[in-house]
Amino acid sequence: MSQPVADPTLRVACVQFRPVLGDVAANLEATCDLLAAARAQGADLAVFPELSLTGYFLKDLVPEVAISLEGPEVERLRRAAGGLLALVGAVLETPDHRFHNAAILLGEGGVLQVHRKLYLPTYGLFDEQRDLAPGQRIQARTVRLPGRVPWRVGILICEDLWHPSAPYVLSRQGLDLLLCPSASPAQGVQGPDGPLGSAASYTAMTRTYAELFTTFLVYCNRVGYEDGVQFWGGSRVLGADGSLLAGPAPAEPLILTAAVDRGGLRRARIAYPLLRDERPAIVAAALGERGGELPTDD
């Protein structure tokens, strides 16, 4: 009897969500409903925006909205996800009471992976380092869904993308699908026909990373307003050659889906064998000499 052939595709869904600021119970309810809606649209993987269970500009609300991996909220999400893979944003409290801006990947009946945001922006309108602790680890992992080929998945949250070392490291760990939850505020309206400044930056970064690291990329930004600041949506799915498979979505609550196919990944890596040709030893040697420190005056 021949082995059934594993399905090389995965249907991903960006859930462009508008959380209620500081109301975890309300956002948890909405998340469970949206997981059901994503499943009804045939999704295998549902990606929610950064801090989707809490909202973004939390300030002193951070300790009040924090949950733990062992708490009832994650258990509720695990049950709601069922056979679906789901990436949900939350403030996670460590046993020693540090608070992380985290993305939790649920699937295979439990928590598969937690990414804690590495780079906490603290400039301009951002103030994350005041309230949150930075993550310490970048780790891609293999995800297996029944009847599907395995996928190497990496997670980076919003500002993490502004540091190209982060997707670089994931790429060296093996990366087929980069998931990027985001809460990017709208800023920069210059130029008579110009795009939104924030959108232009993410369009450039996501395209560049998908193309140069030859990886599928899912960018899920939130929508809605907090204290007068708009989150501009623009969620999208990119192919491993940098092409747009779906989106950018308009700035309203919606679910955007697209199928990713390993055939596309293979073709991109044949056309552009950048992964094969990369020379990490040169990077390691160059950084190793100084530990990556900037030059000093001496």
Binding site: A186, V189, Q190, G191, P192, P195, Y225, Q230
Partner: peptide, 24 residues
């Protein structure tokens, strides 16, 4: 060359309409 203060009025109007609708 256009002034650096030149805005995209359609983009601005869209953000401001959403602001008024949602924040009320």
């Amino acid at each position: 060359m256009s002034s650096p203060l030149t805005i995209n009025p359609a983009l601005v109007a869209g953000i401001l309409r959403g602001f008024l609708a949602e924040e009320t």
